[in-house]
Amino acid sequence: MAYSDKVIEHYQNPHNVGSFGSSKEVQARKDVGVGIVGAPECGDVMQLHIQVSDAGVIQDAKFKCFGCGSAIASSSLATEWIKGKTVDEALAIKNTEIVEELSLPPVKIHCSVLAEDSIRAAIEDWKKKNGHATAVDAHAAHAH
């Protein structure tokens, strides 16, 4: 199966690879949201670190990814797209947009889903640390 040129470009020169510290360090930082999704036995794990201002703007983002080329490209692209966006704007990013941008074939759609999930998970983590209502809270409130 041939990869699209954009996937190959992200694979060779991934954007924003890295982290804002070890797992313990970022756990302690209130301005950093951490999202880790996937599982090694499934063949992909995405880790997204976002640094968010008090006003809720994503100032910087770093990713690490264990996965196929499409997973790497999806997470690399996600960091590009969310930088400078507010958390609400970032939450509006849909996996289908990633599929389209990277021309992912159907068998690789789960990579884009994982990227969307990692954005949500990182923002949830930041919200929880900062006492904002999370999607989980909203869900619970709705249930009442």
Binding site: V17, S19, S23, K24, I36, P40, Q47, K64, C65, F66
Partner: peptide, 15 residues
Amino acid sequence: KMSPLYDLFKEGVDI
């Protein structure tokens, strides 16, 4: 360099 699992291994975390 971009593997989160390798970082965890380096931190001594049992994956």
